[in-house]
């Protein structure tokens, strides 16, 4: 099981561009979403004329299904400066990859609960760390895409863009840098020093 928790209003306000397209995943059976809080926030954004469109759907981690739905809303997405996604970390990463070249923002943190995990037949992995970093990394998870789970940038171990631990794996931070460059968000590199809080990470004992 996993739970998504809405990020604080201050966090989201400081982060989001002027206009966003909103993508809301109402999920799978394994995820518990803060549905009412999200609905409230979206209606606030709608009142403030911040939203170019809303898509509510389930299983946004299914790229075939999702790409079709996004295609139908192309105009609304093009009108926005970014896409705000309310889902678990896997969903945000799926959208980031599908909408390459576009800024994608995570509206939630994902927290692990014991029990059955969602079945995601994808390479995207969410560490369910409880403090989603995807907004600082262009929608590529540094906790799962980096062998050392580094949250402040690349180590010195990458060779030809490959990880020192597993040469079959691309360096996660090389990918993050390229993605941030492509979406014009290299300013995210200058964010404050990140320090993980293992008190909220249910994986910590593993």
């Amino acid at each position: 099981m996993l739970i998504t928790k809405l990020k604080s209003r201050e966090d989201l306000q400081s982060l989001l561009p002027e206009k966003v397209f909103v993508l809301l995943c109402n999920g799978c059976k394994e995820v518990s979403f803060p549905e009412r809080e999200i609905e409230e926030l979206i209606s606030e954004f709608l009142t403030a004329d911040k939203v170019t469109g809303v898509l509510t759907t389930d299983y946004i981690c299914n790229p075939e299904n999702l790409s079709l739905r996004l295609k139908r809303r192309r105009a609304m997405i093009d009108e926005a400066d970014g896409v705000l996604v309310f889902s678990c970390g896997v969903g945000v990463q799926t959208v980031s990859d599908l909408l390459e070249g576009r800024a994608v923002y995570a509206g939630c943190d994902t927290i692990r609960l014991p029990g059955f995990q969602g079945v995601t037949p994808l390479e995207y992995d969410c560490g369910q760390c409880g403090q989603c970093y995807l907004n600082l990394t262009g929608g590529i998870c540094p906790v799962t895409a980096c062998s050392k789970s580094l949250v402040n940038g690349q180590c010195g171990g990458a060779q030809n863009g490959r990880c020192e631990v597993d040469p079959n794996m691309e360096c996660g931070w090389e990918r993050i840098y390229r993605r941030l460059e492509a979406v014009g968000r290299l300013d995210a590199i200058k964010c404050p020093t990140q320090i993980r809080n293992f008190a909220i990470d249910a994986n910590k004992s593993h």
Binding site: N152, G153, Q154, G156, A158, Q159, N160, G161, C171, W173, E174, I176, Y177, E181, L186, I189, K190, T193
Partner: peptide, 14 residues
Amino acid sequence: CSDSIDAQLAKMER
């Protein structure tokens, strides 16, 4: 002399 020089400079700045 890294082949990821942009990412290295970004880390240096941090």
